[in-house]
Amino acid sequence: MAVSIKNNGQKIWQLRDRNNQILRWFFLFIAVAIIMYCWQKISSQTEWFFVWDAPRIAGDIGSRALPPRWSYIDQLWEPLWDTINIATLGTLLSLFFAVPVAFLAARNTTPHPVFCRWPALLIIVSSRSINSLIWALLLVAIIGPGIFAGTIAIALRSIGFCAKLLYEAIEEIDEKQVEAITATGASRWQVMAYAIVPQIMPSFAGITVFRWDINIRESTVLGLVGAGGIGLQMQSSLNVLAWPQVTLILLIVFIAVIISEMVSAKVRAAII
């Protein structure tokens, strides 16, 4: 806010003073310039002829994709079951690693603020930076295609996510309860089990279910790179341009994701 007084004594009110205003316009200008430049780059790499043709192509695909081929559903139950298993087992597997990593990364529980905390943070950021599809790509190259690779890929990606949220929860606990248990003469591990674990239990359960929900979504596409689940069917349907089958798969994926989201929301509401 800035109030200035004119020569004739009149008070002028402005939200910001002049320098501030100029600075804001300047940043806005820079931001717009960057975005325009980026857009221009994209535009130069685009065949605009195809783009103008897009509505026709979309209409064409749409007309070929409908109605879904309902009979194909017989071949989808097993991949769907695999998809759910990949998500569930992957989430469980990731917890085995995420919990210790979180305790090493949290400022108030780490045994050493540099030698333990930093490696833990590095594990978290590496795991989080790399998409599960890339992990799957890598694992398919290393241990071969299949559900196993998919499960490990989901687990590797989830470690960082769960550990990050969990260590933030650990850092937010009430230190007085920890102090009280320490004062009874409890050992380090007992303090952990009695004062810290009960406090983070609700967040732990919430994080797990939340990540499971995300993993259902992620595991529907792992098949595209050969890591099992319903994505395999999608890939093979796309390869032969069987659009009615693709529609059915998308429909199933959509329903599965909505149901898992509902389950996860219910469980999280029940915990709190």
């Binding site: 994209i42 992620e218 994926v253």
Partner: peptide, 28 residues
């Protein structure tokens, strides 16, 4: 919002590549 959240990015990308052709426009 529900449709956008339920479909994984890569699925959307496949459809958009089919419609708009290869390149960063589909990614965008």
């Amino acid at each position: 919002i529900a449709v956008s959240r339920a479909l994984h990015e890569i699925i959307v990308a496949i459809l958009l590549v089919a419609i708009f052709g290869f390149g960063p426009l589909a990614g965008f």
